[in-house]
């Protein structure tokens, strides 16, 4: 057996779950002829058998289920799938989710009145922090804000022709899965719109954050640009990057509000290499 073949087989052993290793023809035929890889496979089976139960052995905090049920039941009463409500959702969630460290502190201090008073003050501070901290991109963008951004970017378009566009909005939500380039970008809920009757002008818009960069990402269901990213400037002078998805069926326009557009361009170009 040559080393390269054995390396590939061992990587295959590493990447297949035990039940698939047993039925994989490529593995079986190699392992029959290669005692070293056979030994490796046996070793991995033994390692996995002992590691998995230990990985899953994590004590669950008392009352966790009740806390989750309580917070989710409040959200369940609202229709939260509409992006228009996203700012309101953020407020509801901020009220519902308090860090575990704060909760633990509250549990321990409930016996003494003076501590209760202190906790109340701390809670007020926490709530105020939630309100004053800049909102995460996940919940910020509203339909009107998206419309304004698009107007600034595409001044020749007529805003009267814009409608909400749920289907594309939803498909955009899966972009993190479809487009590996964007899997590490934190994106707000998207607002989908149709710019005119032409289905080639469906647009989804969201805010994003990716490492040190943030701004607005506009996605077209069209192959408007070349595949390779390039930088330009919007009518208002903002740095804009534009490129096409690896599959070629989506076009991206990225307005960089924070961080260097040049550096982000380099980063995206790196993914194309």
């Amino acid at each position: 057996m040559n080393n390269q073949e054995c390396d590939e087989i061992r990587q295959r052993i590493d990447c297949l779950p035990a039940r698939e290793r047993e039925t994989d023809d490529v593995l079986s035929s190699h392992l029959m002829d290669c005692p070293e890889c056979h030994k490796y496979a046996e070793f991995q089976n033994s390692f996995d058998r002992q590691l998995r139960p230990q990985l899953l052995e994590v004590a669950i905090p008392e009352g966790l289920k009740e806390q989750i049920l309580q917070s989710t039941s409040a959200l369940d009463d609202c229709d939260l799938s509409e992006s228009e409500d996203s700012v309101q959702n953020a407020e509801v969630e901020a009220e519902l989710v308090r860090p575990a460290t704060v909760r633990q502190h509250q549990r321990g201090s409930s016996l003494l009145k003076w501590v209760i008073a202190g906790t109340a003050v701390a809670s007020v501070i926490v709530v105020m922090m939630f309100q004053w901290t800049p909102a995460d991109p996940q919940q910020r963008l509203t339909y009107d804000a998206a419309k304004d951004l698009l107007l600034a970017q595409f001044q020749e378009m007529s805003p009267e022709e814009w409608d909400r566009l749920s289907p594309f909005d939803q498909s955009f939500e899966t972009l993190g899965i479809v487009d590996p380039q964007l899997s590490e970008w934190t994106r707000s809920e998207t607002v989908g719109m149709s710019l005119d009757d032409d289905p080639q002008h469906e647009v989804a818009i969201c805010e994003f954050r990716f490492r040190q960069w943030s701004g607005v990402l506009i996605t077209f269901s069209a192959d408007e640009f070349d595949g390779v990213p390039e930088q330009s400037y919007s009518a208002s002078g903002q740095s804009v990057l534009q490129w096409r998805s690896p599959g070629g069926d989506l076009a991206y326009v990225c307005i960089v509000e924070q961080g260097s557009a040049e550096e982000l361009l380099t980063e995206i170009l790196g993914n194309f290499a």
Partner: peptide, 18 residues
């Protein structure tokens, strides 16, 4: 454990919405 509690709670809120 504290981060895991927060992550779990936040994940279910997100799951509930999506």
């Amino acid at each position: 454990h504290a981060d895991a509690e927060d992550l779990t709670q936040q994940a279910f809120l997100t799951a509930c919405r999506k």
